[in-house]
Amino acid sequence: MSFDWSIVWSSLPRLLEGAWMTIWLACVTMLLAIPGGLVLALLRLSRIRALAMAATGFVEFFRATPLILQIYWVYYVLPAYFDVQLSQIATAVTGLVCNISAFNSETFRSGIVSIRQGQWNAAYALGMTPANVFLRIVAPQALMRVLPALASTWVSLFKDTSLVSIIAVAELSYVSLQIRAETYRILEVLTAMAALYWLMGYPQAKLVDWIHHRFKVAE
């Protein structure tokens, strides 16, 4: 069996483009899923039951079904039954954002409820508005507590972006599999793909370890 690593070097520009798309997808998804998760968490904690139940339904649906199904669903069902036409990238981002928002909402919710009532009371006793109490007192403390969980979600998200290759979004997995199909150099291409994912993922995993260590809950 002979190896032809030149395939990897000649395909490197395309692979890097794919890697760039992977990074872009993960970043855009997280940037949207943080406010998305926060809104869902606040809705679930709302005293208005209809809002709380709607948010709960959304979260439990997206947490309990596979991401790949959700992406297909957005890709096929939205255009066919709801007359919503999205580009492939928009479809990918929509699916990922819905899924990650659901996970983030549970993370944020657990962080918010972990702040004891006394902190709310102390802030209210100063005459602060509910919005100020939340933004200045509760949210910053909750965020510190959930940072490790949020970081873990990020690492999963980074790898899960590969699932949008099924709708032909040219991120790293899709590009790699394309090159494999064109060249039949399976081992070389998959090795290059693994190396690129690892080079990007390993520093992140280390960063998460550091965050876990740094933000351990301390009162």
Binding site: G118, N121, A122, L126, G127, I137, P140, Q141, M144
Partner: peptide, 19 residues
Amino acid sequence: RLVRQRMGMVFQNFELFPH
């Protein structure tokens, strides 16, 4: 809120803002 602004409160568990 106007009442609370003019009424200071001190709690058993201090409830300082840790952040």
